[in-house]
Amino acid sequence: MAIKDYIRERFFPHMWCAGCGHGIVLNGLLRAIEQIGISKNDIVMVSGIGCSSRISGYVDFHTLHTLHGRALAFATGVKMSRPELKLIVPMGDGDALAIGGNHFIHAARRNIDMTAIVMNNRIYGMTGGQYSPLSGYGTSATTAPYSNIDHTFDVVNLSVAAGASFVARTTAYHVMQMISVLKQAILHKGFSVVEILTQCPTYFGRKNKLGGAVEMMEYFKNNTTSVGSKAKQENPELIERGVFVRKEIPEYCSEYEKIIQRATIG
């Protein structure tokens, strides 16, 4: 099956800007799904609001385009009521971790079986380049004209602390790794988080004088390293990529099945 069989071709070319990393995430996600070979009827994609969330319109799955930050809450209802479905929840960084931060940590804590993809471009793109919780101290944004004084979350550490049972990070440059970790995340039984650093040349790149899409991807190439690598020891500034956590712990829907068994015995 070619990846074109997984998209709604009539909506292409898509609405993302030239060079937007979100398109690369869509590309990699489709290949991961193609390689796993899941039936389109078995996948529910739930997204929130923002540039990232438009991904759900382009894929030929059951697609639920919800409210800003609430994708995981909607997904929880879908998953609990039909546990056999595969839930994939792509979100932007503001979507997942500002307005949706509470839902994010609680979905992770429950270890409900779904894959959260944080498409982290460090900016609110749809509204025109305001700083997000992932922009970082010292960055520039349309709402941080004097420089941003907000510190960031570390998405990986946050996810681990919240209890996610699979946590990975990759970038829009590292497409082979992206496909690989997405496959692992989707196949993992439990709450999986994949943070993908993606470039927003239109706003984050321009506001912070980082060049275009190519230069921003060069940055991902040159400033990241495999998790636990020697390079990280030598240069602590490098951002680690790879799978950080993978553990088998009781999954929420499976546990609820046990509740049903307990309740129906008496």
Partner: peptide
């Protein structure tokens, strides 16, 4: 989250 979850479950 509660109202969002019931909407998701209703859809199924």
């Amino acid at each position: 989250a509660s109202v969002c979850a019931i909407i998701g479950a209703s859809l199924t």
